[in-house]
Design a binder for these strands. Structure first.
Lengths: 212, 212
DNA sequence: ACCTGAACACCGTTCAAGT
DNA sequence: ACCTGAACACCGTTCAAGT
């Protein structure tokens, strides 16, 4: 309980930004140890505080999980944005985006599982609104590309219908998400690389979107 | 601890088929209470045995979870088989199958989450082979339909290439799975019904598969 | 306002012992 | 072979108390 904060100027009682430190500690457990089944007490230990200090910043464990998941969604969004930044046409962008998405999942299996797993799906009843908003972060990038493709006339979508738009965007997201998740669980059923998966996407979802 | 087995002929010590009873108890917790975060002790309580009796039949909790998930995959397969039994052409069968899949998820959210969640994805390292085999059950039905469509010339797949086949089947499964999972977590982002989701699938995956 | 120590009601798992 | 009771090392959460 003392070695953990022996960095330089030991803060004896108040931590300064314990909230941030707890999120970082949880994030390191998820990304470094690849373990999303961490306990709140372990996070507190990592942050060098007592096991109930977190309750000053999160009313329950799930709130911390949601905060970690939100960081994950931001990272995923950044990866996608960086990937599409190097592209021109919308179909190229969509493919690059899907590839970045699949790679993110492959590189951060535990974080990806946390983002779409227990944190958001409460054991009973509906999931907290905060969790749903965090997840929408990732979808927005896909929506932008698809709308771009629609406006430029490259994709077969009618952009004046909001519900129709939602259907298409959701279909695309679901296809990429499903691939990511199932490949993490080794459900591919064959030795398929990320490029194999992308080719599958191209020949199904993309082919449906692009009428050529 | 006594009321639970006061049915007719009370079996005092040996249960008869405790293994089956434990799986059923867990299944009822998942499907009736819609709670996949049950404890092993609670399952034992439901079955009317001591909290460590399960260890005579399952070496750890995860083994019971896998058994429950396997039952879930069988039910999903049966639902799909029943749905395609009433169809003729392969494209019609694929759509009916996808609809049955989406409905199964919507009706059994907790079971579906268990099937694709914590049980199969161990906190660290690879998932047990037994868990992966159970999951393949569901994919087989999709594979059959797609191969049928390919052989009949209705789908744009070359059936003589096994890897190519795996790519296409996996793409289709991923699309349906992703939709099911994301809609359970209320990530649709709009009020989309199952028929809306199906339409999205039809215009993306199916359109890619069927060259017309 | 933020953190600690002791306490409560749970877990999963193990082990010696009973039938 | 199958089940029980007691025990161990954990949890998440609460509450009164300290700074």
């Amino acid at each position: 309980m003392s070695a953990a904060r022996s960095a330089s100027t030991a803060r004896p009682y108040h931590h300064g930004d314990l909230r941030r430190a707890l999120i970082d500690a949880a994030l390191s457990l998820v990304t470094e140890e690849q373990d999303w089944t961490f306990s709140l007490r372990e996070v507190a230990r990592r942050a060098g505080v007592s096991h109930n200090a977190p309750y000053s910043h999160f009313s329950e464990k799930q709130d911390l999980l949601i905060a970690v998941a939100a960081t994950g969604f931001e990272r995923l969004r950044d990866r996608m944005k960086a990937a599409i930044g190097r592209t021109k046409a919308a179909d190229e962008a969509l493919l690059a985006c899907a590839k970045a998405y699949l790679q993110f999942g492959a590189e951060n299996p535990a974080l990806y599982r946390l983002m779409f797993g227990p944190a958001l799906a409460a054991s009973k009843g509906g999931r907290p609104a905060e969790a749903r908003e965090a997840g929408a972060t990732a979808k927005v990038v896909l929506a932008e590309i698809i709308l771009r493709g629609a406006r430029s006339g490259l994709f077969a979508v009618s952009p004046d219908d909001a519900k129709d738009e939602a259907k298409i965007v959701f279909s695309a997201w679901a296809a990429v998400h499903g691939m990511t998740m199932l490949s993490l669980d080794e459900f591919t059923g064959a030795e398929l690389t990320i490029d194999d998966l992308l080719e599958g996407l191209e020949r199904t979802v993309l082919k449906g979107l692009i009428p050529r």
